[in-house]
C-alpha cells in the first residue's frame, strides 16, 4: 500500500466545485460592493455600522473556501505528509474568532450608546447636485446588502450539500440570513427619521447579537474540527454514515473477526485508521491492501485510510454496539 498522493474530486463533483468557486468569487465582488456602499452612506448610524461590519466579515467564508480550493490541489510532500487540508480548518477558525470578537465589540458599543442615550446624528449627502438626507440613501444601500445575498445563499446551499463542504454551508447560511441584518438596520434608520434616537442602537444590538451567535456557532464547529471530533454530516445534524459503512464492510470480509475504525475530517476529506482482528494470518498483507481499497471506494471523500491488524480490540465505555465504534488508541 502506498501513501495517497493529492486528492481529486470525482468528475461530477468537479463541475459542482467549479460552480461553487465561481459563486464564491461573485460573492466576494458583491460583498465588497455592498460594504463600500454602506461605508459611504452610514454616517454615524450605529446600526449601519453593524450591518457594514457584518458584510465585511461575511467575506471570510468565501475567502476560506477559495483558499481551500487552492490547497486541495497541492499534493503532500516530504515536509507535509498529510497534505494541506488542515489549512481550511485554520481559515475557518480564524473567521469564527473574528465574527465573535467584532460581534461582541459592536454589542458592547451599542449597549453603551443606548445606556448613555447618545443620539445618532445623520446629516445630508450631496448626490447629483441634490442634498438628500443620509437616512434615505442608506435604505437602498441596505437593500443592496440584503436582497442579492439571499439569492446567492440559496444558490450555494445545494452545492454545499452535494460537495459536503462545511465552509460553503456556513457561508450559504450566513448569506441567507443577511436580509435580517439589513432589515434591522433599515428599521433603525426609519426610527431615526421619526426622531426615535434609540431605534438605531437597539437595531445595532439585534444585529450584533446575530453576529455573536454566528461567531459562537462557527467557533464551536471549528473547535470540533481542531480536536478531531467524529465526522458529522455537512450541516452537523448527525454522525457521518461512512464510519458505520467502513466497519460493516470490514466485518463482512470472511477473514475479519472484529473491526474498529476512526476517522477525522481534514477540510472536506476524511483520513483515519481501521483496526482489524484477523481469524488467521494467511496472506494477511494482500487481504489488508484489498480491504483498504474497498474502503477507499466507499466514498469520494475517503482519502487516506490505514488498515492495521491487531490481536484484540478494546471497547470504549460509551460504545453502543460492538462493531460500530471508534477504536481506542491501541498498544
Amino acid at each position: 500500500m502506498t501513501l495517497p498522493a493529492g486528492f481529486e474530486l470525482p468528475p461530477d463533483k468537479q463541475k459542482l466545485h467549479r460552480k461553487a468557486r465561481r459563486l464564491e468569487w461573485l460573492t466576494i465582488a458583491y460583498l465588497l460592493s455592498a460594504t463600500a456602499l454602506l461605508y459611504l452612506t452610514i454616517g454615524q448610524s450605529q446600526a449601519g455600522k453593524a450591518a457594514m461590519i457584518e458584510d465585511a466579515l461575511s467575506l471570510t467564508p468565501p475567502i476560506a473556501f477559495l483558499i481551500a480550493a487552492r490547497l486541495r490541489d497541492k499534493p503532500p510532500d516530504q515536509q507535509h505528509p498529510w497534505g494541506f487540508h488542515r489549512g481550511v480548518t485554520l481559515a475557518y477558525l480564524a473567521s469564527a474568532v473574528s465574527l465573535l470578537l467584532f460581534g461582541s465589540f459592536i454589542l458592547i458599543e451599542s449597549t453603551l450608546k443606548l445606556v448613555t442615550a447618545e443620539h445618532p446624528p445623520l446629516g445630508v449627502i450631496e448626490l447629483f447636485g441634490e442634498q438628500i438626507w443620509l437616512g434615505w440613501v442608506m435604505l437602498p444601500a441596505l437593500a443592496w446588502s440584503a436582497i442579492p445575498a439571499v439569492f446567492l445563499g440559496r444558490a450555494k446551499m445545494p452545492l454545499a450539500a452535494s460537495l459536503h463542504n462545511k465552509v460553503l454551508y456556513a457561508d450559504a447560511k450566513m448569506n441567507k440570513a443577511d436580509w435580517m441584518t439589513a432589515t434591522a438596520a433599515a428599521v433603525g434608520v426609519i426610527g431615526i427619521a421619526f426622531g426615535l434616537w434609540w431605534a438605531d442602537a437597539a437595531a445595532a444590538i439585534a444585529i450584533s447579537l446575530d453576529i455573536v451567535r454566528d461567531g459562537w456557532t462557527n467557533l464551536r464547529r471549528a473547535g470540533r474540527d481542531v480536536i478531531d471530533t467524529r465526522p458529522s454530516t455537512y450541516d452537523g445534524s448527525g454522525p457521518h454514515p461512512l464510519l458505520g459503512q467502513i466497519e460493516e464492510t470490514l466485518c463482512e470480509l470472511d477473514w475479519v473477526q472484529e473491526a474498529q475504525a476512526r476517522l477525522r475530517e481534514e477540510g472536506h476529506v476524511f483520513t483515519g485508521e481501521a483496526l482489524v482482528v484477523a481469524r488467521d494470518d494467511d496472506d494477511l498483507v494482500a487481504r489488508i491492501e484489498d480491504a483498504a481499497r474497498q474502503i477507499a471506494a466507499l466514498d469520494w471523500r475517503m482519502h487516506d485510510i490505514v488498515v492495521v491488524p491487531v490481536s484484540s480490540l478494546q471497547r470504549r465505555p460509551d460504545a453502543p454496539k460492538p462493531q460500530v465504534t471508534h477504536a481506542r488508541e491501541h498498544a
Binding site: 447618545e118 443620539h119 445618532p120 446624528p121 446629516g123 438626507w133 431615526i192 426622531g195
Partner: peptide, 18 residues
C-alpha cells in the same frame, strides 16, 4: 450641532451647502 437633532442638522447643512 447637538448630536441626533437631525432635522436641525439637515436644515443647517442645506443652508450651508447651497
Amino acid at each position: 450641532a447637538p448630536l441626533g437633532e437631525n432635522a436641525w442638522l439637515v436644515r443647517l447643512e442645506r443652508f450651508l451647502l447651497t
